[in-house]
Design a protein around this nucleic acid. Structure first.
Lengths: 250, 250
DNA sequence: AAGTGGTCTAGACCACTCG
DNA sequence: GAGTGGTCTAGACCACTTG
């Protein structure tokens, strides 16, 4: 039995996170296999010299990840469900493409301050007269055009974005680093349609080819809408991959 | 101030669930508004005569729902993010349609025991020679054909389904009630395409109309694959609505 | 300094499963 | 009856925010 690293009390990483990580490592390494029980909370607590509550906190978070599941009176078992690595979490094209193993790049069609459309005003809950940052890009993976994305952001949220953002970089990274803006959730609607002449030309596909139309609104943790995106992606090279989960609460 | 119901110690509903429900009710009723802080854990604990840990457990579960968010040193605030009512959780056509306010119905094209295809064998991890239940249905909403669904389930998981299942009912309900089979997660791939002659005829749309192709594999909590579904939905009447969330762990 | 959330402890009792 | 997970307590200390 290989000796595992000791827990570090008083570290910046809380004990339950360390325990969670230990268990995760043991599962990923195959030391704990799908279907097998993990040690009981009592046992882990005794071994590591921590309270049972702390261990339970770690196990609970693993349950929420879906990598283990608990059965009262029986134990906690390793699930065979794969980790959601390549599943969509949120929405950055750059991250998405990297996760799929492609090289993301963008070609900027437009990047300027604009008056918002009625749809964007409603989506971003803009006040009268408020302007937006308008950013339209062709998204490429390995130099192949994948889709056209039109983003709108409230100007007030990132007033000097025009100066500070290099549109070839990741918009989300810039927003996070420069403004502390982090997307928390996004609601997205996907529709199936056909490419018209303009879209076909930009994406270099035949007119009438199948495409996805996306409409997405992203929100901060406090519920404030921060981004409205309308995009069109090629149906022949783009797939939507989703993990759907049963919710319990409510 | 309207007096809220007292907590019930020793009930079948744990205290933290009762507290969670109380807070949820206050938020839904508007007594606690988006952006406002909820009472501190200390205060709630004192008011209700429970331990702070118990209150924190309730608040944490509300954070996971996304209805509140906590800021260390500041407090816990009501989020303006809408509850995921009409967002896809899992996957039952019946539930989905009801949630969208439509009347679901199905027309059975085929319901029988079959030899699995290579794709299904791999998806369901079938042993050599194992058979499947094959169920093909046209899905209708308010009598309009929406899509064609082909489901495959391991025969071993539901050996007498052919006798026990009325194909006009909800498959998922039957599986849950008769076999204790409950879907936990599903991985789904959606593609955009065009209707061929056969699909067009069944869905009563023009050939070449835009459609969604779905491939879905559903899993039990232990990771065992339990259902493989391939389906084609009309692009003109069906939309994919998703809520994407940022994950933190891992 | 006071108030907040975040973590942790060392117990306790319960409900459940299994031999 | 022994072992498990699920809940709960009454404290404690820390990090952080605000006045």
């Amino acid at each position: 039995m290989p000796s595992l690293p000791q827990l570090t009390h008083g570290s910046f990483v809380p004990l339950y996170r360390q325990i969670q990580q230990r268990l995760l490592d043991q599962i990923r390494s195959g030391a704990l296999k799908p279907g097998e029980p993990i040690p009981s909370a009592q046992e882990i607590a005794a071994t590591l010299g921590v309270s049972q509550m702390t261990v339970r906190q770690a196990i609970k978070s693993l349950c929420e990840l879906g990598v283990v599941y608990s059965r009262q009176g029986k134990g906690t078992f390793v699930s065979g469900i794969k980790l959601e690595k390549d599943f969509r979490q949120v929405l950055s094209f750059s991250e998405d493409m990297k996760a799929r193993g492609s090289m993301p790049r963008s070609k900027v069609l437009s990047f300027e301050i604009r008056h918002p459309s009625a749809e964007v005003i409603e989506a971003l809950r803009l006040r009268a007269g408020e302007n937006i940052i308008h950013l339209q890009r062709i998204r490429q993976a390995n130099s192949v055009p994948m889709g056209i994305e039109t983003s709108s952001l409230p100007l007030r949220a990132c007033p000097d974005l025009l100066d500070k953002f290099d549109p070839r970089q990741s918009l989300y990274e810039t927003l996070s680093e420069r403004y502390g803006i982090n997307m928390f959730v996004a609601d997205e609607v996907a529709e199936a349609g056909l490419a018209d002449g303009e879209v076909a030309r930009l994406l270099r596909i035949a007119e009438g080819s199948p495409v996805f139309f996306f409409t997405r609104i992203s929100y901060l943790q406090d519920g404030q809408p921060i981004e409205h995106v309308q995009s069109t992606y090629r149906g022949d090279r783009y797939k939507i991959v989703n993990r759907l989960t049963r919710r319990n609460h409510g």
